[in-house]
Design a protein around this nucleic acid. Structure first.
Lengths: 293, 293
DNA sequence: TTGAAAGCGCTAACAG
DNA sequence: CTGTTAGCGCTTTCAA
């Protein structure tokens, strides 16, 4: 593998001059620059980021820590967005999963430190609070989809779940529905709480009665180990006689929405005539492929 | 950030001795080793992989190139498997997407070269042939889910789609079905061809008539830009009178299977009584959440 | 078992 | 505009 010195020798300049060309620094004559670039091309020279790191303390790598984010549908879009932006910056992305375990998380931070990562994005699957305890010395970190409890010094990017819950409720109300059910996310999750609050507030403001027995969780079990049970729950709610069942079901996400749809099918209810269903999150693999759309 | 020399000074040894301890090399007395380890802990020393790279030519990083793999359901499992194995080896994984474009692919290879990646995994979304044209000097590469045309020097891990197609056909036949439809993947894809061949061969061997008009693609468009149309295709096939429609539909994947299911619903056919549906690939987000299971 | 010297490929700091 | 010197943090080589 060729080094900067090989290039310098071929172009008849010093290695520092080659360095200037490679890094796009000023103060190189057009002529010299051209000669150097020819040599680079001829020798197929590729700079060694590791060696550069020893002098600059900038590795050119951004680290992404995910809990289990890369398994969820919208997480793909998060990663995409990050990648698009990072490639603009001549940086690379080092992705690591923690599988949600404390132990793996420590390992990952260490790996990042070993590679002298320039910065870290810490992303979670659900919008939630985390206990954020990175090792020192600290690397610049931004939280994605989560907030660190008791730490207002860490920047975070989070969705506006409250607004989302409000929008869903208003959409149902504006469509004329008054008997509204809600198959929610795991209520232990922050996103579920925020959306739930927004739902209730909106219903109250509009003067529409909230039926507590129509608000039920589509997941059973603790955070991270929940099992979806939306089908059973929705079937239960929809089993009532027509006069005593909701005319629309809000769903905590599109997974739940799909199960509501199947529950309606199982009960021979027509969608959306007998019961309408409103999804959440726009999981492409579901929202784009379910009938009715 | 502490260096190996800081540790050496604190432990009262040479930096080379610290290096030996850090790398688990022999020829260090237990006593010395202990002193060094104490110093490492006290100073929170973390080795600099970049600096190490300049001497060893081993970066400790494996690169993963995906076309659009991280968007498909089973790709998640591929990445998981790779990560699990790599963490065993004290290596890290650098993931990069090419979005299927040639240009991005070149950029990615270059990034890997700059970081002196130890080896590359090149994974595709569909099982298919690729034109494999990595830059030189070559890095050790293994293909995942694809094979390089005209190159038998590149190791590859691929699924046995032929066997899969055979298994699906036999399952249907063993269940007593004789009128068998098949909503396939994009027939341009290798996986689709192999499964198709296996299907036809199996049907012939069992002496069951193949109805060409019941074998149709669930996707329209070229590879990589296809649009799913399985719902329409399945509805079309299933619209025939009971005596002239298949009693079972094989699906090219679970996305297609789900659309077949919705098509059956739309026609008020009972699944599996009127028509059975056999999925493929086990996309968890679908297979585990669809009713009937 | 340990360490001294040299050098990996690169860039910072400075001089010309 | 260009080059020289020094040195980043580590490992290799070889001597002790």
């Amino acid at each position: 593998m060729q080094t900067i010195r090989d290039v310098a020798a071929m172009a008849g300049v010093s290695d520092k001059t080659v360095s200037r060309v490679v890094n796009g620094e000023p103060n190189v004559s057009a002529k010299t620059r051209e000669r150097v670039e020819e040599a680079i091309a001829a020798l197929e020279y590729i700079p060694n980021m590791g060696a550069r790191l020893t002098r600059t303390n900038r590795s050119g790598v951004i680290g992404l820590i995910t809990d289990v984010v890369s398994t969820t549908p919208n997480s793909v879009d998060i990663i995409r967005g990050i990648q698009d932006r990072i490639s603009t910056e001549k940086q690379s992305l080092l992705i690591a999963n923690t599988s949600g375990t404390r132990e793996e998380e420590q390992r990952v931070w260490r790996t990042f430190q070993e590679h002298r990562i320039d910065g870290v994005l810490f992303a979670t699957m659900y919008h939630r609070h985390i206990t954020f305890d990175p090792p020192k010395p600290a690397m610049p970190t931004v939280l994605v989809n989560c907030t660190a409890e008791g730490r207002d010094d860490v920047p975070a990017v989070v969705p506006d779940d409250y607004q989302g819950g409000q929008a869903a409720a208003e959409f149902a109300l504006d469509a004329g529905h008054r008997r509204i059910g809600f198959v929610t996310l795991n209520p232990l999750i922050l996103a579920a709480r925020l959306r739930g609050q927004a739902f209730e507030k909106t219903m109250q403001e509009r003067g529409v009665t909230i039926r507590r027995d129509w608000i039920r969780s589509g997941y059973a079990g603790g955070v991270g180990e929940e099992r979806i049970c939306a089908f059973d729950v929705a079937r239960d709610i929809l089993s009532a006689p027509a006069a005593d069942r909701p005319t629309v079901l809000l769903a905590g996400n599109d997974e739940i929405a799909m199960q509501c749809l199947f529950a309606a099918h199982a009960l021979h209810l027509r969608v959306p005539d007998d019961v309408a269903i409103i999804g959440f999150d726009d999981f492409q693999k579901i929202s784009a492929q379910v009938f009715p759309r």
